[in-house]
Amino acid sequence: MGFLRDKHLLGLAETPKEDIELILQHASSFREVLDRPIKKVPTLQGKTVVNLFFEDSTRTRISFELAQKRLSADTVNFSAGRSSLKKGESFKDTARNIEAMKIDCIVMRHPVPGAHVHLINYVNSVVVNAGDGTHEHPTQGLLDMMSLLEVKGNLEGLKVALVGDIKHSRVARSNIHGLLTMGAEVMLCGPPNLMPVNIENLGVSMSYDIDEVLAWSDAVNVLRIQRERQGVSYIPSVREYRDLFGITHERVERLKEPITIMHPGPINRGVEIDSDVADSENAIILNQVLNGVAVRMAVLYLLLGDQPKAS
């Protein structure tokens, strides 16, 4: 058994504060490993992790794979397009077949919300959610918190804004749950038709005035914008979005206090964020990427590592 309350990491909605703290502590230790000339520890030697990706991903899959390799785990990648999964072999059979080959952990990305809740009914392996549709992306939430912690020193009372398409964002949901658990304040900003209904019930505040939101915040996490999703147009034009919600050079310049700029990637430069804002000294976007490896190492270690024997 691992060190966390739950056997799996499915989301941050149910993850208790102690577990988030434990993950972040270990992540910062593993972060140091990544600065060594030899970036590898034997921690998960003999453990096998399968990265089961039912949706295209480059950075998250590479980040998980690197985390596994740095921990000396054996890793296997399985990528399947959405369509092949939907028709052919059932989801249940795919998972069971892979598990039958004696593995310890499944890291899964899936386009359908809640797919991981189904997966744990079919397999005994430890399951880590690498993104399930528009539900959660817990390791992203954790790496965002780790990156904030690095520059701010504390999450308690920190004012964090999430800007963009909240409705379709698993990153937003994991950030909301994690940050609120850790005592931060969260404000959402974006077009009203991209706000999920009753989102205030999760404990966040909301505004449609980006300048007011930026003036309020200590840090802003800028979400990727897509004009159209599944044939429905949500944003009339890039120009208009940038005018109303873009994190532009002029907006950031006007702020009295500098704020930390984050983005989970991939960035649409000139759309949701201006190039020079993304590259500015207050932007920690590349730290987020590096911390992603460390956080995933911590999660895998805490879920798969052996408990020291009680004396």
């Binding site: 919300p113 999920p196 209904v197």
Partner: peptide, 17 residues
Amino acid sequence: LNGQMHEGTWSTRLGLA
């Protein structure tokens, strides 16, 4: 649209359309 469950606090939490 591609809605999956009643739209309310639960759909927002669960990430289901």
